[in-house]
């Protein structure tokens, strides 16, 4: 848009007052702001020793987990909705016929490439059975790329690790399952 476009509305700024022209009040104002921040509480933490406080773990998007149902089986029904929804294409599922009567398929393998993942939470949204969830774990590290591709066992173990601290969102949020 050109500056001469008729729809540009030029707005007259308020002219500076005497105190503003004299600059000193602004100087003092600036210095007090800086000095206040100098002594105020810091927002960063010394990470490995101190853990950052996470406001609401239910809406934090950290490492994924694959939930188990009450019998300890993987909840996933291998419907591929999460893989379809994933914008980063980091979910890889191999489906096979389910050995259990209550569903048709289950994932023979379920891999999430955590290095490609952008932690948008779309998989969580897409999942019809609330099998994939994002936990509030934030220190996701590894020594190789291969190590960062989480398979089904690893994702289930994340569930085992976090199920006490973070109950399944479906129940706590009034979900269907």
């Amino acid at each position: 848009m050109k500056p001469t476009d008729p729809s540009v509305r030029w707005i007259e700024e308020r002219p500076l007052g005497l105190t503003e022209r004299l600059y000193l009040p602004l100087v003092v104002q600036g210095l007090t702001t800086t000095a206040r921040h100098l002594v105020s509480k810091k927002v960063t933490v010394s990470f490995p020793e101190e853990r950052p406080t996470i406001g609401n773990p239910l809406i934090y998007r950290g490492v994924h987990r694959l939930n188990r149902d009450d019998d300890g089986r993987v909840k996933c029904v291998a419907c591929f909705l999460c893989a379809t929804a994933c914008p980063a294409h980091c979910i890889d599922i191999v489906a096979t016929e389910s050995p259990w009567p209550d569903r048709e398929k289950y994932p023979e393998s379920f891999q999430i490439d955590e290095l490609r993942c952008i932690f948008c939470g779309m998989c969580e949204e897409a999942c019809p059975v609330d099998a994939v969830e994002l936990t509030s774990l934030l220190d996701l590290t590894g020594k190789s790329r291969e190590e960062m591709i989480f398979d089904k066992e690893k994702l289930l173990s994340v569930y085992d690790m976090t199920k006490d601290a973070e109950p399944m969102k479906s129940k706590s949020l009034g979900g269907t399952l």
Binding site: T34, H37, L38, S40, K41, K42, V43, T44, V45, S46
Partner: peptide, 13 residues
């Protein structure tokens, strides 16, 4: 350090 503290950080430690 000053830069960090003014910006509410901890600075090199």
């Amino acid at each position: 350090w000053m830069a960090a503290w003014v910006q509410d950080r901890k600075g090199p430690n």
